[in-house]
Structure formats: structure tokens, C-alpha cells
């Protein structure tokens, strides 16, 4: 336990910042220790897309109907136009519109 009087908070936050920075650097550092072959590259490629999906899963699970419609609209426009910004804008507009009605 650290008291939040005096320099306590600054110390706590500095420790948090250090841990977060280690997480930011750590992935690249660890990969530097592993020889890059086809299997490792396959692992990295498989991981890249699934991290995106894994970030999405709880967002979709927790979303209300408006939020899920937003994801659906973004996904549909993305498959059609392949342009992220219009797809995101449509998704947000759909969520706002659905919730306003």
C-alpha cells in the first residue's frame, strides 16, 4: 500500500507509466530474440487480424441494438466501398439515429 499523500501519487503513476511502456516495447523486444522463420511469420500474421477481432468482440457483445446496427452498417459499407472513413461515419450516424428514434 502506498499513501496518496505527498509524492505518493506521482510515484504510483510513474510505476504505471513504466509498466505500460514495457508493454509497448516488450512485443518487439521479445520478437527480436526469436529467429524469424515461416512459422513465426505465420503466427504473427494470424495474430494481427485476430487481435483486431478480439478487441471488437466485447464491444459487440456489450452494445445495444443501436450499437450492433452501427457495426453492421460499417461492415456492409466497408465490404462495398473499401473506404474506412465513410464506413465509420455511417456506423456512428446509424447508432445516433437509432437511439434518437
Amino acid at each position: 500500500m502506498i499513501s496518496t499523500a505527498g509524492y505518493g501519487p506521482a510515484l504510483i503513476i510513474a510505476c504505471m507509466a513504466l509498466v505500460t511502456l514495457l508493454a509497448r516495447f516488450g512485443g518487439v523486444f521479445i520478437m527480436g530474440l526469436i529467429p524469424l522463420n515461416r512459422r513465426v511469420e505465420g503466427f504473427i500474421n494470424g495474430m494481427a487480424g485476430s487481435v483486431l477481432i478480439a478487441v471488437l468482440v466485447p464491444i459487440a457483445l456489450q452494445a445495444d441494438a443501436g450499437g450492433r446496427l452501427a457495426l453492421l452498417a460499417t461492415g456492409a459499407l466497408m465490404l462495398w466501398l473499401k473506404q474506412p472513413m465513410p464506413a465509420i461515419a455511417l456506423g456512428i450516424a446509424v447508432a445516433a439515429l437509432y437511439r434518437a428514434l
Binding site: 501519487p9 510505476c15 504505471m16 509498466v19 508493454a23 516488450g26 512485443g27
Partner: peptide
């Protein structure tokens, strides 16, 4: 009072995704 070790473990757990993200850019 702030429990430092649980806080840092929580911070690392939440930010562990950054380890994977960094690795994909390697």
C-alpha cells in the same frame, strides 16, 4: 492508500494487448 502491486498487475493485464500489437509490427 493505493495497493501498488495489484494496480501494476492490473495495468499489465489490460495493456498486455500492446505486447501482441508490437509483435505484429516486428
Amino acid at each position: 492508500q493505493v495497493p501498488l502491486l495489484p494496480l501494476l498487475v492490473t495495468t499489465l493485464a489490460i495493456n498486455a494487448r500492446m505486447l501482441l500489437m508490437g509483435a505484429t509490427l516486428y
